[in-house]
Design a protein around this nucleic acid. Structure first.
Lengths: 209, 209
DNA sequence: CAGCCATATGGTAGTCACTACCAAATTCCT
DNA sequence: AGGAATTTGGTAGTGACTACCATATGGCTG
């Protein structure tokens, strides 16, 4: 709308970009928030108003990709579940493929900085929960709907996560979405070993099968 | 062996117990490390030698449950994959059922404290990675082994996670392991909607199916 | 038992992420 | 142009966590 919001968006971008630059040059752990603020020519106080934690400076892009896919899915209530799940998966991957360098840098930082890894897992968990909630609404409302939805969302997230981990290592030779489709057909054709209820782990427990 | 290790284990337990007590009484965020150290009658310095972060004071139990299950699995190389996966799942749940109050408290803290949730997700991720590595060793060594192993480990972890979340809310009326078996048979019988490669998410991408 | 070595402990000083708060500057609206 | 709302930067502080060192304690040897 007004000049205010434009300027706000501009400084937001400026801070995020300078932060990313410093992280890449010196590493996440060896970059202080004060340095970032100084590089963006704002006070630390202002920086914290835009980004509540240091980790959000790194992970905002991933968060947006996941968030967009979920809200897109919410707006497609007529979609068949299986097709919808595929579409969500592909949508996330499509968004991530927009900026492979960024994704790779994020995963590198996560690999060597515990707090970044933790925050990333947190985002993933949130995506999974949101997706599960939406799935439950579309499942037949029996007493297992919530359970089923959680499992389905977990599998979808699992595919995304696994595909991305492969893809970030070889972004040039790998097509994330076709890899995802391989995962889907592996799942559907029994190419993945699934746990089977054929083994008793301990006989001295009070549990009866 | 000697008196030294006995004493070390004793103070370790003492610190963890006092910490858990304080967390339950005052909440995780409103308990400082100095308070815990004072309650356990040790210096903060000593506390940090035993527990590198405040979160490990909460999550050590869960970490042990997951770690034990993985190392148990590593020692059973002859086990069929499907049976092995089930056994790992049941073993984790069995261990967690040892102390339902603790598990519940951990999940409560995770629900209201971001850093605990993050650290918990971190543990889960580590379990998944370790399990995947072990699975890869047992899969036929084609170029998809790593991929397949990661997906299988993710599904196993997904079952555990989903079951535990249901179980912690109703620990008295729910049997975690039988719930897990329900999840397994749902998966095997197609009771879970899986993503299917039947939908084109966008036609303007350079991707051809 | 005395003495020595390895280890465990507690304290000090400091860094850094993050919060609460306030006064000054900037933008928007009339 | 003037006042209201909002954005900003600075100050002071909390608390997790680290590096370091002097002291104390348990374990072993002569």
């Amino acid at each position: 709308m007004g000049l205010r919001e434009v300027k706000r968006e501009r400084t937001r971008r400026l801070i995020a970009d300078k932060a990313f630059e410093l992280f890449n040059d010196n590493g996440f752990g060896r970059t202080t928030v004060e340095q970032i603020a100084a590089a963006a020519e704002v006070g630390p106080s202002t920086l914290y108003r835009y980004f509540p934690t240091k980790e959000t400076l790194v992970l905002e892009f991933v968060e947006d990709c996941l968030g967009d896919a979920v809200s897109w899915f919410r707006e497609q209530p007529e979609l068949e579940l299986t097709a919808g799940l595929q579409a969500v998966i592909e949508r996330v991957l499509e968004q991530l493929e927009t900026n492979p360098g960024r994704v790779r840098a994020v995963f590198d930082m996560a690999a060597q900085t515990a707090s970044v890894s933790a925050h990333l897992n947190e985002l993933i968990w949130r995506f999974r929960t949101d997706l599960a909630d939406e799935l439950v609404l579309r499942l037949p409302a029996d007493n297992r709907a919530e359970f089923t939805g959680a499992l389905a969302a977990g599998i979808a997230m699992n595919i995304i996560e696994t595909v991305v981990r492969v893809w970030v290592d070889t972004p040039d030779t790998t097509d994330a979405r076709s890899l995802a489709r391989q995962a889907m057909s592996l799942l559907r054709t029994g190419g993945i070993p699934l746990p089977a209820a054929t083994y008793r782990v301990s006989d001295n427990s009070g549990y009866d099968s």
